[in-house]
Design a protein around this nucleic acid. Structure first.
Lengths: 144, 144
DNA sequence: GCATATCGTAACAATACTGGTTACATAAAC
DNA sequence: GTTTATGTAACCAGTATTGTTACGATATGC
């Protein structure tokens, strides 16, 4: 195991909402597609609603739907909505500042990690939910 | 907290070895600089030795030293030596394949994660231990 | 050969994160 | 007011990480 599956599941959730465009989709239906518990899905959706990627409605006939067109939602938007700001272990890293190396290494690492993170996020920003949706289609509409 | 501090500590360790170039440095001395337990350092060094970034010697007068010049060691080399292959949660992610979305999303995510990971690693590969060493120097050799 | 320094690694505890589950309050539709 | 569905708290089990103790293996120098 390495890390959590929040991002992967969230992309799946939004892809499912894009697939069911326009409909009100319940957490139970999404959970069935992801094969997990509806509460797990609602926990993620809670974050996605706060990030204004998704809109939810309570009550009979309620459920969730995309807040914007899939073309306007990138994987980076999703990533930022459900993942905490990564610190690459720097909060657990408290070197001895009396040592010349320990005194300076933290700043150096912070700069390096920022570059790496920025580069990764730029790549996520280049992929939209519409792209994901398009890749989904061949199976859903394929003529045999 | 997000993730572990192995990479951060490892960069510190190798920077310390670069700083002490040529000398045999014990795990106890490194642990003092990092402010942790020598066993924690030896655990990391075990991985760094396997990756041939570091050479260790037992016995009296023993310790560790860099296996190559700092210019020939990149942060990506260190990252790969001590971090498991990241899967971005895909091993915990087992969607329902009976659903059209669940059946395809895994491959799509794998491709997207690979692009993001590759981009991040390319950035790490651009930073060498020599670069880190250079950034360390101003404090260590500063004329006051 | 023997004492010493040092690595190598297993074992264990403490802490924290994740995901699944139950439970229940809240809100909307009819 | 009943039903449906979200929102969220609480708890559990599984696992990762770090710190720590312990001890065997190995190399040095006498």
């Amino acid at each position: 195991m390495t890390g959590n599956s929040r991002f992967a599941v969230s992309v799946h959730v939004l892809a499912y909402l894009a697939y069911k465009a326009g409909a009100q989709v319940t957490s139970a239906e999404i959970a069935s597609s992801v094969d997990t518990n509806p509460v797990v899905i609602r926990r993620l959706l809670s974050a996605l609603v706060k990030a204004r990627l998704v809109v939810g409605h309570k009550g009979v006939g309620g459920g969730f739907g995309l807040a914007s067109a899939p073309a306007n939602i990138t994987l980076l938007d999703i990533y930022r909505a459900v993942e905490p700001q990564p610190d690459h272990g720097l909060d657990r890293f408290t070197p001895n500042h009396k040592c010349p190396v320990g005194a300076r290494i933290e700043t150096i690492l912070r700069t390096a990690f920022f570059k790496a993170q920025t580069s990764m996020e730029a790549e996520l920003a280049r992929i939209s939910l519409e792209d994901v949706h398009q890749q989904l289609k061949p199976v859903c509409t394929g003529k045999h």
